Simulated scan of single mutants.
Amino acid sequence: MIDRLQPKYHIGDHDFSIQYMSRNGSSSMPRPHEHPYFELYYLLNGERVYFMDDNVFTVKKGDLMIVNPHELHSTASSDKLIFERVLIGFSRTFIEQGDAAVANLLEHGTSRLVRIPLKHQPEIERLLHSMLAECQTEQTHYSSLVRSLMNELLIRLHRIETTLQSQTHEYEHPMHQKISEIAQYIKSNFHEKLTLEQVAKQFYISPSYLSRVFTRLTGFHFREYVQVVRIREAQKMLVSSRDSVQIISELAGFEHIAHFNKTFKKIAGTTPLQYRKRHG
């Protein structure tokens, strides 16, 4: 494996970060994750498999993934092992400090894949490389210039998206579509009893093959993904309702309250009651 991984440059604690990476070899995120800030993932070269919002995407050169805060996502290698990307994390506050109107562009947008037309790619890449250079050299007022470049990037992305026809999500591989359908099925039926064998039978796949491909494309073991979906749904119910923890555990698909409490703490890092108190 050949890597060129530059340091991750930061402005503030969680206001802004940017990192360049070039890699030749199979790789994937150690764990699917979420975070409280926006993320832009731009592929300069190569190809990646991206799992986000219950969908498997094939990301290619010139593609940009826009990830909203708290959206569970992961990346993995495709059949093409060489890739080069720039990753940006930023808060809404960071943008607002430059221009509140630009920050409003972040409202109501879903996490999505944007295929940047070839004619616009050089301009997008110029902005990315300019931000990297500013963070590397840290010349006078560099943070203000990075904010200005970031605002320009968001404006240009908005213009590009408004001129594009609504892009339909085309799956690169039949199993990408199948795994997306299974992830969406789990999300819609989290309250039911879900087993690998039952879901595999329903989607006409062998359990061992489903287990292997699901883990490779999503970063989750099948049973683990079911638990994560259930806990995330339970978190919503804890904040939006006054139902007891016992009732919420049942509505989320858990048969035993002790198992629910243990799983909740493992995934959320706190107990259900503490979570409700903190977010209610």
Rank of each mutant, 00 (worst) to 15 (best):
F260E: 07
H169R: 09
E161V: 11
Y209L: 07
S144W: 04
S78E: 09
S111W: 01
T58G: 03
N45F: 12
L118N: 07
T75K: 05
I2C: 09
I257E: 14
L40A: 13
H120M: 11
A103H: 08
L196D: 03
G46F: 08
E96M: 14
K277F: 05
F254C: 07
R276D: 00
T270F: 02
I11W: 06
A100M: 11
T140R: 15
G219W: 04
R216V: 03
A100G: 06
I160S: 07
E47T: 08
T270K: 13
E107P: 05
E224M: 04
R230K: 10
L164H: 06
K201P: 03
L132M: 11
L105P: 00
H221T: 00
R4H: 14
S244N: 04
N45Y: 15
A183M: 03
R112L: 12
T163F: 12
I82C: 02
F57T: 02
N151Q: 14
E172W: 09
E123K: 15
H70L: 10
N261G: 07
Q184V: 07
D79R: 11
V146Y: 09
Y50V: 14
E96N: 08
L145I: 11
S244D: 11
I95D: 01
A268K: 12
R85A: 13
V228C: 07
E96D: 03
